[in-house]
Design a protein around this nucleic acid. Structure first.
Length: 364
DNA sequence: AATTCGGGGCC
DNA sequence: GGCCCAGAATT
Protein backbone atom coordinates (compact mmCIF):
# COMPACT_ATOMS: atom_id res chain seq x y z
CA UNK A 1 0.00 0.00 0.00
CA UNK A 2 1.26 3.42 -0.97
CA UNK A 3 1.16 5.43 2.23
CA UNK A 4 1.51 9.20 1.85
CA UNK A 5 4.05 11.11 3.86
CA UNK A 6 1.23 12.92 5.60
CA UNK A 7 -0.27 9.60 6.70
CA UNK A 8 3.11 8.54 8.01
CA UNK A 9 3.25 11.70 10.10
CA UNK A 10 -0.10 10.85 11.61
CA UNK A 11 1.08 7.50 12.96
CA UNK A 12 4.16 8.94 14.66
CA UNK A 13 3.97 9.28 18.41
CA UNK A 14 3.37 12.88 19.52
CA UNK A 15 6.93 13.26 20.78
CA UNK A 16 8.38 11.90 17.57
CA UNK A 17 6.15 14.19 15.56
CA UNK A 18 7.33 17.25 17.50
CA UNK A 19 10.95 16.29 16.88
CA UNK A 20 10.31 15.76 13.20
CA UNK A 21 8.66 19.18 13.03
CA UNK A 22 11.51 20.98 14.78
CA UNK A 23 14.05 19.38 12.46
CA UNK A 24 11.95 20.44 9.50
CA UNK A 25 11.84 24.01 10.80
CA UNK A 26 15.59 24.05 11.39
CA UNK A 27 16.14 22.94 7.83
CA UNK A 28 14.53 26.17 6.61
CA UNK A 29 17.29 28.45 7.88
CA UNK A 30 20.01 28.11 5.27
CA UNK A 31 17.84 28.23 2.13
CA UNK A 32 15.69 30.96 3.69
CA UNK A 33 18.56 33.32 4.46
CA UNK A 34 20.23 32.63 1.14
CA UNK A 35 17.00 33.28 -0.78
CA UNK A 36 16.25 36.50 1.13
CA UNK A 37 19.72 37.91 0.42
CA UNK A 38 18.99 37.71 -3.27
CA UNK A 39 15.26 38.33 -3.41
CA UNK A 40 14.44 40.98 -0.82
CA UNK A 41 12.31 43.68 -2.39
CA UNK A 42 13.61 47.20 -2.24
CA UNK A 43 11.15 49.00 0.03
CA UNK A 44 11.31 52.54 1.42
CA UNK A 45 11.48 51.42 5.06
CA UNK A 46 14.30 49.04 4.24
CA UNK A 47 16.67 51.82 3.15
CA UNK A 48 17.84 52.14 6.76
CA UNK A 49 16.54 50.14 9.72
CA UNK A 50 16.27 53.17 11.97
CA UNK A 51 13.90 52.18 14.82
CA UNK A 52 11.45 55.03 14.18
CA UNK A 53 11.15 54.13 10.50
CA UNK A 54 10.70 50.45 11.30
CA UNK A 55 8.06 51.28 13.89
CA UNK A 56 6.00 53.53 11.64
CA UNK A 57 6.19 51.11 8.72
CA UNK A 58 5.20 48.11 10.83
CA UNK A 59 2.18 49.91 12.25
CA UNK A 60 1.10 51.02 8.78
CA UNK A 61 1.59 47.50 7.44
CA UNK A 62 -0.77 45.93 9.98
CA UNK A 63 -3.50 44.34 7.86
CA UNK A 64 -2.46 46.63 5.03
CA UNK A 65 -0.73 45.82 1.76
CA UNK A 66 2.73 47.08 0.95
CA UNK A 67 1.61 49.02 -2.11
CA UNK A 68 -1.03 50.86 -0.09
CA UNK A 69 1.48 51.84 2.57
CA UNK A 70 4.22 53.27 0.34
CA UNK A 71 2.76 56.72 -0.33
CA UNK A 72 1.51 57.11 3.22
CA UNK A 73 4.91 56.20 4.64
CA UNK A 74 6.73 58.76 2.52
CA UNK A 75 4.29 61.53 3.38
CA UNK A 76 4.28 60.62 7.06
CA UNK A 77 8.06 60.55 7.42
CA UNK A 78 8.32 63.93 5.73
CA UNK A 79 5.68 65.52 7.96
CA UNK A 80 6.75 63.80 11.19
CA UNK A 81 10.41 62.79 10.84
CA UNK A 82 10.91 61.75 14.47
CA UNK A 83 9.33 60.66 17.71
CA UNK A 84 9.21 64.16 19.18
CA UNK A 85 7.42 65.57 16.17
CA UNK A 86 4.92 62.70 16.37
CA UNK A 87 4.38 63.28 20.09
CA UNK A 88 3.48 66.93 19.57
CA UNK A 89 1.40 66.76 16.39
CA UNK A 90 -2.29 67.63 16.67
CA UNK A 91 -4.77 64.79 16.41
CA UNK A 92 -6.49 66.32 13.41
CA UNK A 93 -3.22 66.73 11.52
CA UNK A 94 -2.26 63.17 12.37
CA UNK A 95 -5.57 61.75 11.21
CA UNK A 96 -5.31 63.77 8.02
CA UNK A 97 -2.00 62.02 7.36
CA UNK A 98 -3.74 58.69 8.01
CA UNK A 99 -6.90 59.50 6.02
CA UNK A 100 -7.85 56.55 3.81
CA UNK A 101 -5.40 54.09 5.34
CA UNK A 102 -7.98 52.64 7.74
CA UNK A 103 -7.82 51.30 11.29
CA UNK A 104 -7.49 54.82 12.64
CA UNK A 105 -6.78 53.72 16.20
CA UNK A 106 -3.33 52.84 14.86
CA UNK A 107 -2.61 56.53 14.36
CA UNK A 108 -3.95 57.50 17.75
CA UNK A 109 -1.92 54.76 19.43
CA UNK A 110 1.20 55.95 17.61
CA UNK A 111 0.83 59.38 19.14
CA UNK A 112 0.12 57.95 22.60
CA UNK A 113 3.20 55.76 22.38
CA UNK A 114 5.33 58.67 21.17
CA UNK A 115 4.22 60.74 24.16
CA UNK A 116 5.18 57.87 26.47
CA UNK A 117 8.54 57.50 24.77
CA UNK A 118 9.30 61.20 25.22
CA UNK A 119 8.19 61.17 28.86
CA UNK A 120 9.66 57.87 29.99
CA UNK A 121 12.22 56.61 27.48
CA UNK A 122 14.21 59.69 26.57
CA UNK A 123 12.42 59.99 23.26
CA UNK A 124 13.71 56.71 21.86
CA UNK A 125 12.30 53.26 21.24
CA UNK A 126 13.53 50.69 23.76
CA UNK A 127 15.74 47.88 22.46
CA UNK A 128 13.63 45.29 24.25
CA UNK A 129 10.84 43.02 23.03
CA UNK A 130 9.03 43.18 26.38
CA UNK A 131 9.26 46.98 26.64
CA UNK A 132 8.15 47.44 23.04
CA UNK A 133 5.15 45.18 23.58
CA UNK A 134 3.94 47.40 26.42
CA UNK A 135 3.51 50.37 24.09
CA UNK A 136 0.01 51.07 22.75
CA UNK A 137 -0.52 49.59 19.29
CA UNK A 138 2.41 47.18 19.60
CA UNK A 139 1.46 43.53 20.01
CA UNK A 140 3.52 40.39 19.71
CA UNK A 141 4.08 40.61 15.96
CA UNK A 142 5.06 44.28 15.87
CA UNK A 143 7.25 44.00 18.97
CA UNK A 144 9.06 41.09 17.34
CA UNK A 145 9.42 42.93 14.05
CA UNK A 146 10.86 46.10 15.60
CA UNK A 147 13.10 44.16 18.02
CA UNK A 148 14.55 41.98 15.29
CA UNK A 149 14.71 44.41 12.36
CA UNK A 150 15.77 47.56 14.21
CA UNK A 151 17.81 46.02 17.04
CA UNK A 152 18.80 42.54 15.86
CA UNK A 153 17.18 40.86 18.85
CA UNK A 154 16.45 37.17 18.08
CA UNK A 155 12.69 37.05 18.66
CA UNK A 156 10.12 35.84 16.12
CA UNK A 157 7.70 38.11 14.24
CA UNK A 158 4.70 35.97 13.38
CA UNK A 159 2.20 37.63 11.08
CA UNK A 160 -0.30 36.19 8.61
CA UNK A 161 2.48 35.44 6.14
CA UNK A 162 4.53 33.48 8.64
CA UNK A 163 1.47 31.59 9.87
CA UNK A 164 0.71 30.55 6.31
CA UNK A 165 4.29 29.63 5.37
CA UNK A 166 5.02 27.63 8.51
CA UNK A 167 1.65 25.89 8.44
CA UNK A 168 2.36 24.74 4.91
CA UNK A 169 5.96 23.75 5.61
CA UNK A 170 4.93 21.63 8.59
CA UNK A 171 1.65 20.44 7.07
CA UNK A 172 -0.34 21.80 10.00
CA UNK A 173 -4.12 21.77 9.66
CA UNK A 174 -4.63 23.88 12.76
CA UNK A 175 -6.77 26.99 12.44
CA UNK A 176 -4.31 29.88 12.01
CA UNK A 177 -6.90 32.40 13.24
CA UNK A 178 -6.66 30.94 16.75
CA UNK A 179 -4.48 32.93 19.09
CA UNK A 180 -3.14 29.71 20.58
CA UNK A 181 -1.79 28.63 17.20
CA UNK A 182 0.01 31.94 16.76
CA UNK A 183 1.59 31.84 20.22
CA UNK A 184 2.56 28.22 19.70
CA UNK A 185 4.32 29.13 16.46
CA UNK A 186 6.13 31.99 18.19
CA UNK A 187 7.44 29.54 20.80
CA UNK A 188 8.68 27.11 18.16
CA UNK A 189 10.39 29.76 16.07
CA UNK A 190 11.98 31.34 19.11
CA UNK A 191 13.76 28.05 19.78
CA UNK A 192 15.15 27.48 16.32
CA UNK A 193 15.72 30.92 14.78
CA UNK A 194 19.33 32.08 14.29
CA UNK A 195 20.71 34.36 17.00
CA UNK A 196 22.83 36.38 14.59
CA UNK A 197 20.42 36.93 11.70
CA UNK A 198 17.06 37.71 13.28
CA UNK A 199 16.20 40.53 10.91
CA UNK A 200 16.81 38.61 7.69
CA UNK A 201 15.23 35.46 9.09
CA UNK A 202 11.96 37.15 10.07
CA UNK A 203 11.79 39.32 6.98
CA UNK A 204 12.68 36.33 4.84
CA UNK A 205 9.73 34.32 6.14
CA UNK A 206 7.42 37.29 5.65
CA UNK A 207 8.81 37.94 2.17
CA UNK A 208 8.23 34.34 1.09
CA UNK A 209 4.66 34.59 2.31
CA UNK A 210 4.11 37.86 0.50
CA UNK A 211 5.53 37.01 -2.93
CA UNK A 212 5.91 33.20 -3.19
CA UNK A 213 3.76 31.31 -0.70
CA UNK A 214 0.77 33.52 -1.50
CA UNK A 215 -2.70 33.16 0.02
CA UNK A 216 -5.03 33.54 -2.95
CA UNK A 217 -4.56 31.20 -5.86
CA UNK A 218 -1.76 28.72 -6.19
CA UNK A 219 1.54 29.41 -4.39
CA UNK A 220 4.63 29.68 -6.61
CA UNK A 221 6.32 26.57 -5.26
CA UNK A 222 8.66 26.49 -8.23
CA UNK A 223 10.34 29.63 -6.91
CA UNK A 224 10.22 28.71 -3.23
CA UNK A 225 13.45 28.02 -1.35
CA UNK A 226 11.48 25.93 1.13
CA UNK A 227 9.72 23.66 -1.36
CA UNK A 228 12.08 20.74 -0.69
CA UNK A 229 11.19 20.72 3.02
CA UNK A 230 7.51 21.61 2.63
CA UNK A 231 4.89 19.04 3.62
CA UNK A 232 2.04 20.89 1.90
CA UNK A 233 4.03 20.92 -1.33
CA UNK A 234 4.93 17.24 -1.08
CA UNK A 235 1.37 16.21 -0.29
CA UNK A 236 -0.39 18.70 -2.57
CA UNK A 237 -2.11 20.35 0.38
CA UNK A 238 -1.49 24.01 -0.48
CA UNK A 239 -5.17 24.29 -1.39
CA UNK A 240 -6.35 23.32 2.09
CA UNK A 241 -3.52 24.71 4.23
CA UNK A 242 -3.65 27.14 5.93
CA UNK A 243 -6.97 26.36 7.57
CA UNK A 244 -8.99 29.40 8.61
CA UNK A 245 -12.40 29.51 10.25
CA UNK A 246 -15.03 31.26 8.14
CA UNK A 247 -15.91 34.82 9.06
CA UNK A 248 -19.37 35.71 10.15
CA UNK A 249 -21.45 37.87 7.82
CA UNK A 250 -21.28 41.63 8.22
CA UNK A 251 -24.14 43.67 9.59
CA UNK A 252 -26.20 45.88 7.31
CA UNK A 253 -26.97 49.42 8.42
CA UNK A 254 -29.10 52.10 6.76
CA UNK A 255 -27.99 55.73 6.95
CA UNK A 256 -29.31 59.03 5.71
CA UNK A 257 -26.51 61.50 4.97
CA UNK A 258 -27.26 65.21 5.19
CA UNK A 259 -25.35 67.83 3.29
CA UNK A 260 -26.34 71.02 5.07
CA UNK A 261 -25.45 74.17 3.17
CA UNK A 262 -25.44 77.71 4.48
CA UNK A 263 -23.76 80.72 2.92
CA UNK A 264 -21.45 78.66 0.75
CA UNK A 265 -20.31 76.39 3.54
CA UNK A 266 -21.23 72.81 4.36
CA UNK A 267 -21.67 71.27 7.81
CA UNK A 268 -19.40 68.53 9.14
CA UNK A 269 -18.99 67.16 12.64
CA UNK A 270 -16.38 65.19 14.55
CA UNK A 271 -17.20 61.56 15.32
CA UNK A 272 -16.92 59.99 18.75
CA UNK A 273 -13.39 59.31 19.95
CA UNK A 274 -13.99 55.56 20.08
CA UNK A 275 -15.59 53.03 17.78
CA UNK A 276 -15.89 53.03 14.01
CA UNK A 277 -13.96 55.84 12.29
CA UNK A 278 -13.15 57.30 15.69
CA UNK A 279 -12.37 61.04 15.79
CA UNK A 280 -12.71 61.47 12.06
CA UNK A 281 -15.10 64.00 10.52
CA UNK A 282 -18.33 63.19 8.77
CA UNK A 283 -21.37 64.73 7.21
CA UNK A 284 -24.23 64.75 9.70
CA UNK A 285 -26.25 61.59 9.26
CA UNK A 286 -29.13 59.71 10.81
CA UNK A 287 -29.94 56.04 11.23
CA UNK A 288 -32.38 54.59 8.73
CA UNK A 289 -33.52 55.67 5.29
CA UNK A 290 -35.56 58.80 5.91
CA UNK A 291 -38.14 60.26 3.57
CA UNK A 292 -38.08 63.79 2.20
CA UNK A 293 -41.17 64.51 4.27
CA UNK A 294 -39.31 63.48 7.41
CA UNK A 295 -36.44 65.79 6.50
CA UNK A 296 -38.82 68.70 6.05
CA UNK A 297 -40.50 67.94 9.38
CA UNK A 298 -37.09 67.83 11.10
CA UNK A 299 -35.85 71.15 9.75
CA UNK A 300 -39.16 72.95 9.37
CA UNK A 301 -39.01 76.41 7.93
CA UNK A 302 -35.22 76.49 8.14
CA UNK A 303 -35.01 74.20 5.15
CA UNK A 304 -35.28 76.56 2.23
CA UNK A 305 -34.82 73.69 -0.21
CA UNK A 306 -34.38 69.93 0.08
CA UNK A 307 -32.90 67.89 -2.75
CA UNK A 308 -32.53 64.12 -2.83
CA UNK A 309 -28.94 62.94 -3.42
CA UNK A 310 -27.78 59.67 -5.00
CA UNK A 311 -27.66 56.58 -2.81
CA UNK A 312 -24.35 55.00 -1.92
CA UNK A 313 -23.01 51.80 -0.41
CA UNK A 314 -19.86 51.37 1.62
CA UNK A 315 -18.42 48.10 2.89
CA UNK A 316 -16.32 47.92 6.05
CA UNK A 317 -14.90 44.64 7.35
CA UNK A 318 -17.82 43.93 9.63
CA UNK A 319 -20.49 46.50 8.71
CA UNK A 320 -22.09 47.61 5.48
CA UNK A 321 -23.66 51.03 5.14
CA UNK A 322 -26.52 51.60 2.73
CA UNK A 323 -26.79 55.36 2.43
CA UNK A 324 -29.35 57.75 1.05
CA UNK A 325 -28.79 61.47 1.16
CA UNK A 326 -30.30 64.93 1.00
CA UNK A 327 -28.92 68.31 0.25
CA UNK A 328 -30.56 70.85 2.52
CA UNK A 329 -30.14 74.54 1.83
CA UNK A 330 -30.75 76.39 5.06
CA UNK A 331 -32.21 79.80 5.55
CA UNK A 332 -31.45 80.16 9.26
CA UNK A 333 -28.91 79.00 11.81
CA UNK A 334 -28.82 75.52 13.35
CA UNK A 335 -28.28 74.10 16.82
CA UNK A 336 -25.59 71.49 17.33
CA UNK A 337 -21.85 70.89 17.15
CA UNK A 338 -21.43 71.58 13.48
CA UNK A 339 -18.37 72.95 11.78
CA UNK A 340 -19.22 75.04 8.76
CA UNK A 341 -16.42 74.59 6.31
CA UNK A 342 -15.50 75.34 2.74
CA UNK A 343 -14.77 72.58 0.21
CA UNK A 344 -11.13 73.65 0.32
CA UNK A 345 -10.93 73.15 4.08
CA UNK A 346 -12.35 69.65 3.79
CA UNK A 347 -9.72 68.83 1.26
CA UNK A 348 -6.78 70.22 3.21
CA UNK A 349 -7.65 70.10 6.88
CA UNK A 350 -10.37 67.65 7.83
CA UNK A 351 -10.15 63.88 7.59
CA UNK A 352 -13.31 62.48 6.02
CA UNK A 353 -13.39 58.70 5.56
CA UNK A 354 -13.93 57.18 2.16
CA UNK A 355 -17.36 55.95 3.22
CA UNK A 356 -18.65 59.44 2.41
CA UNK A 357 -16.88 59.72 -0.92
CA UNK A 358 -20.09 59.69 -2.96
CA UNK A 359 -21.12 62.85 -1.11
CA UNK A 360 -17.72 64.47 -0.72
CA UNK A 361 -17.27 64.49 -4.46
CA UNK A 362 -20.50 66.45 -4.89
CA UNK A 363 -18.97 69.56 -3.37
CA UNK A 364 -16.16 69.90 -5.88
C1' DA B 1 -12.31 33.09 22.80
C1' DA B 2 -14.92 36.31 20.21
C1' DT B 3 -15.61 40.85 18.49
C1' DT B 4 -14.35 45.28 16.81
C1' DC B 5 -11.74 48.07 14.35
C1' DG B 6 -10.77 50.13 7.01
C1' DG B 7 -9.83 50.04 2.78
C1' DG B 8 -8.47 48.22 -1.49
C1' DG B 9 -6.69 44.81 -4.84
C1' DC B 10 -7.41 40.44 -6.77
C1' DC B 11 -9.78 36.24 -8.23
C1' DG C 1 -19.15 39.15 -4.51
C1' DG C 2 -15.94 37.13 -1.31
C1' DC C 3 -11.22 36.82 0.31
C1' DC C 4 -7.28 38.60 2.46
C1' DC C 5 -3.85 41.61 3.80
C1' DA C 6 3.76 42.79 7.66
C1' DG C 7 -2.67 42.72 13.84
C1' DA C 8 -4.03 44.90 18.24
C1' DA C 9 -7.28 46.17 21.70
C1' DT C 10 -11.34 45.33 23.94
C1' DT C 11 -14.97 42.60 25.80
Amino acid sequence: MNQSFYDKLQILEPEERKLEEMERLKAMERPLLSWYRENARILPWRETPEPYRVWISEIMLQQTRVEAVKPYFARFMKALPGIRELASVSEDELLKLWEGLGYYSRAKNLKKAAELLVEQYGGELPASYEELKKLPGIGSYTAGAIASIAFGIPVPAVDGNVLRVISRVTGSREDILKQSVKSGMEEKLKKIMPKDAASSYNQGLIEIGAIVCVPNGAPLCGRCPLSSVCVAKAEDLTGVIPVKTPKKPRKAEDKTVLMLWREGKVAIRKREDAGLLASLYEFPNLDGHLSEETIYSLFGAKAAKVTALPGSRHIFSHVEWSMTGFRIDLSGTLEGDYLWVTPEEIKKTYSLPGAFKAYTKLIR
